[in-house]
Amino acid sequence: MAEGAIIIAVLASAIRLATPLILAALGGVFSERSGVVNIGLEGIMIIGAFSAVLFTHITGNPWLGVVAAMIFGMLTASILAVLAINLRGNQIIAGVAINLLALSLSAFLLELIWKRSGATPSVPHALTTNPKGLEFLEKIPVLGDLFSKFTPFVYIAFILVGVTYYVLFKTPLGLRIRAVGEHPRAAETVGISVYKIRWLCVLISGLLAGLAGASLSIGTISLFREGMIAGQGFIALAAMIFGKWHPVGAMFACLFFGLTSAIQILAQTIGIDWAPEFLLMIPYVATIVALVGVVGKAVAPASDGLPYEKGEK
């Protein structure tokens, strides 16, 4: 391959790999900015990936699959919301439970519905190509090749980065969300409902992680396979931290992590013979480094992970 083509191929791959991460990381940003730690992102992605395939299979329309992924993502997240917000339970345990539930439930339903285990058959009309109406982008010289490899989810992810940034930092709602995550009691004393804000944010986080799951199943391989999420929810969590709980920061972190994966996948084409395992490790090492504060310390919202009791002293 020509050098330019290789670079385009790597970039395209990096962006595609980053897409589900960006969507899930934005979900993490919403949830944690409001004070709820969501380590259930992984599980919600599984549910999203599964329901997207299921409903595409049933309706024949992948966009309905996407909607289903978002709805079931929210439903799964509402388990976290009930446990973490209303019952003031341990958010970490709740997250672990969601991951476990999603893993078993998706496999269970897979067997129940398709009478087979491992993977679903692939669905037709998946969203794995550049969307109609945007073909003109492919005609741009050099970059056209890049766009030709995008899926609708790529555009959605980048648009949502902007939307998330705007919502969190420019709107009244965003100010309230951040206040709830920093000092919920202060928010309540000025009449903001901490529970409502946290519920909203956890649901948004479920919606986004569900969408992320859909982008992996019908947006990448057109089917659902057990174990396909393979820790990507945790990488998204890492990206959110690495990006310092900021949507734009998280996006760059995801792109960086996507790039390391892309290089790993295309290592042989590029002619790199490093141990691929070390490339795969980069996101995790980078996150620890970021937390330790070698390059400016990443600090969580002050009340992140703490249950809030209404009317508590």
Partner: peptide
């Protein structure tokens, strides 16, 4: 009941922006 990383104005208008 003040949010530390917010400005004075942000704290005052919070909930009533």
């Amino acid at each position: 009941m003040l949010v530390q990383p917010f400005t004075i104005a942000e704290n005052i208008v919070l909930g009533n922006e």
